[in-house]
Design a protein around this nucleic acid. Sequence first.
DNA 1: CAGTATCCAGCTAGATACTG
DNA 2: CAGTATCTAGCTGGATACTG
Lengths: 141, 141
Amino acid sequence: MATTTAAQKRAATKAVYDAFLAGCPSRKLLDRISDKWVALVLAALGSGPDCAGEPRAMRYSELARLLAGVSQKMLTQTLRALERDGLITRTATPTVPVTVTYELTGLGLSLHEMMRGLKTWAQANMDEVLTNRSAYDSRSR
Amino acid sequence: MATTTAAQKRAATKAVYDAFLAGCPSRKLLDRISDKWVALVLAALGSGPDCAGEPRAMRYSELARLLAGVSQKMLTQTLRALERDGLITRTATPTVPVTVTYELTGLGLSLHEMMRGLKTWAQANMDEVLTNRSAYDSRSR
DNA sequence: CAGTATCCAGCTAGATACTG
DNA sequence: CAGTATCTAGCTGGATACTG
């Protein structure tokens, strides 16, 4: 039926695109790293407090103190998610009271490196974006 | 007063960290690109429908058709945000009815290149993440 | 110390309807 | 064709309180 061809084409396109989205590794990656606290935990474990040091293990309370403003709920949730993905390891030492440390895995370290590339782009270009933004705003107002 | 020193220290740390967060270019970049439709529009304008072609201008309706599932509201909102940031240009041709095309700027193209690096990491490593994820789930259940 | 459990306010995405 | 306007349901994140 020639009259349904166009509609069929569009449906096919949508199906392909939906599948692309659902399976897209980039989308999954973005979903993970775009989380505010994920990025910060990664930065903390990967580069220390000032984002300029060495990767090192940190305790739960140390992270909580460093990421000022994070709620316990979000910190725990974030750490669990990263552990689940194999990006960090959780180590509990049965002292009294218990001591728990978190550390980047090789995979987590690799992700951290990738995010430094992102950081480089941001430092090089976000000023221009911000300039464009305020120029646009003053024009339309 | 020596008794307030610890509290003062923590308050100072928090203040520094809050300032770091507010001004951090990386944070602003993440806020922009983590948006689902931003990433998709960038990919569409930068690499064509199949993410493998050349950067080219596209019409509003063409984008709407390609990004199957996007609402008019979100598409318009996304395009406005990208235009505001100087990442794409909007060109309206006064035909009847009006024709509007969107195209990446140099800055937008540069961002698109950066995101291809992210895509590379995702394609190389997300499989491992997904494996870890299901292993973790089957362990704890 | 290192969490877990619960509740709720705020924002946002999407559906829907309308227009120059 | 390319939008704008409005409404609302659902999710997310934070505050709070409790615990092995």
